[in-house]
Design a binder for these strands. Structure first.
Lengths: 291, 291
DNA sequence: AACTATGATAAAATAAATTTATATGAGTGG
DNA sequence: CCACTCATATAAATTTATTTTATCATAGTT
């Protein structure tokens, strides 16, 4: 069985047109006809019903079943491809959210040096959505991911290593800095500077908006945490960040939010199911789990 | 990419000998050499390290990684094969444990008749271990499975539909039949008739033995529940069964066991992840979930 | 009625996998 | 140390599989 046939088939199920599938793969139309015939002969059952009268192709139950398996097989092939490409490189590629960059990275770095792995590691900083996509598709070896509450990804090995509340971040001279705590619905008239879409903070922010029925203005968005902090310092707007994103040097105040049942910023170490870790990757994963 | 190459490779990783792999697949030895070369060329990395000096093959990290993916791909191919073979048959094949046969089957049958599906269904009765193997490998379309506590199978869609205690089953004239309840460690001197290995009852029985540190004699084992019941009636030994296995017509008494934290006989409806159910199968699954 | 879109079919061409035959290289027993 | 065995590699020939080219069939469209 050739996985190429399965790829043709999955595409045929998707776009339901032999000639277009042929174009997609830069082959001629009879190739697709023949490929489907091979599959139908192999499994001894019709997979696609060609309804000439209405110019419509329908996928039989058998076809749908094969398609479900074909998709897994193609995905696994792509993962193998990506993973072995990673193995060809010497460096371990770790994804981590920029929010953790300042806090975790120095701790981790010293541990890496201790194990003589500092030069074998390469970090990628990006929003958690993007990092999840990258670890899932095999572009990363290990990811440290933030999520709103526990992660639930069936194809991933997830180990939760901590969870932290979201807070309102202000300069020390701001009125909220004097408060021990604040309810989100007291912030309806405040302007926020926020992280860009793709960061879990945005999902959490939406949760607070919805639950408190408050619609604070978002005056600016940036994917860069240090820019965000500077804007908070300069009173452009107040911030919404996990408390671990804030260090003493920032000279900012994190005020906790009182809303009940609020989601927590949850940090997990994530690898793929069926991923084989090199001995070095195992050490790096251990280091991440312990910090 | 040919799945045949992946099969050769997985076998090579397993037995680490080119010639023997060739024999397994009834091909010649150079076929395996060429197949491996194709894979190594394709992924651009060495998969197997041939150590001529010690006559030993070792699998590289890349090879281990490919092997992990290959195994999933081969499994998915076999599932597709089995599932489409099932689709070629008209009858829906349902597995159920014989313990449920008497209780569930009549209820289910009347529902099936109501939907005109009675002739489209074929039941297979066997121990839960065997049924699990059959549903996992695609030989069954749907299985009703008993387990000791909740099932935990990552490749399966499991819906728990009930759980019931295990009980001690005796004829009405037996001393235990007078008791409302009994501790397992009071049964050290009783002889049991038990189901054969492969039934979850055996696992539960082992649990009670271990926890109570009691070793009752097992005088006879049978895979046939009705034979088992007859033996209990004829005082060959006392029984160990879930309470739902016992009906009024049996004229047997089920005495509950008092041991703390005891496992329950749990019934679940099980299908495979990524299995496509025909409309008929969906109805049958619904019926099973509702009874 | 001519035209277009879509898929099927057959023969030819090309590409890929397997076999046959043979080579290499490391151990092993006499 | 020589003949022998075991295990894998290599090259050419053969067989098998896939794709293309060219053409046809059918239904819908202008």
């Amino acid at each position: 069985m050739n996985t190429r046939d399965l790829e043709y088939f999955a595409k045929l199920v998707e776009i339901k047109n032999f000639s277009q599938v042929a174009d997609e793969f830069s082959v001629t139309q009879p190739t697709i006809t023949m490929s489907l015939k091979r599959l139908e002969d192999h499994f001894g059952i019709q997979l696609i019903h060609r309804d000439q009268s209405h110019g419509q192709l329908t996928v039989t139950t058998a076809g749908k079943q094969l398609n479900a398996r074909a998709k897994v097989i193609i995905e696994q092939m792509q993962l193998a491809e990506a993973e072995l490409a990673r193995t060809r490189q010497s460096k371990i590629k770790i994804g981590l959210p920029p929010i953790l960059g300042n806090n975790y990275l120095p701790q981790i770095a010293s541990e890496l040096i201790k194990h003589g792995l500092m030069n074998n590691v390469e970090t990628v900083e990006s929003g958690s959505d993007d990092l999840l996509e990258q670890i899932m598709s095999g572009k990363l070896d290990i990811a440290l991911l933030g999520s709103v509450g526990p992660m639930n990804e069936t194809n991933m090995d997830v180990t939760q290593i901590g969870s932290y509340p979201f807070t309102i971040v202000t300069p020390p001279e701001h009125r909220l800095a004097q408060c021990d705590h604040v309810a989100f619905n007291e912030l309806g008239n405040d302007a926020f500077v926020l992280l860009s879409a793709g960061f879990v903070h945005v999902k959490a922010f939406e949760w607070f908006k919805k639950e408190s029925q408050t619609e604070p203005e978002v005056i600016y968005r940036t994917p860069d945490v240090s820019i965000l902090k500077k804007m908070i310092t300069q009173h452009v707007g107040i911030g919404f960040l996990t408390n671990i994103a804030i260090t003493d040097e920032d000279n900012l105040v994190a005020t906790r939010i009182t809303d009940a049942d609020q989601p927590l910023f949850t940090i997990s170490v994530v690898t793929r199911k069926n991923q084989i870790l090199t001995p070095e990757m195992k050490i790096v994963k251990e280091i991440l789990l312990q910090n």
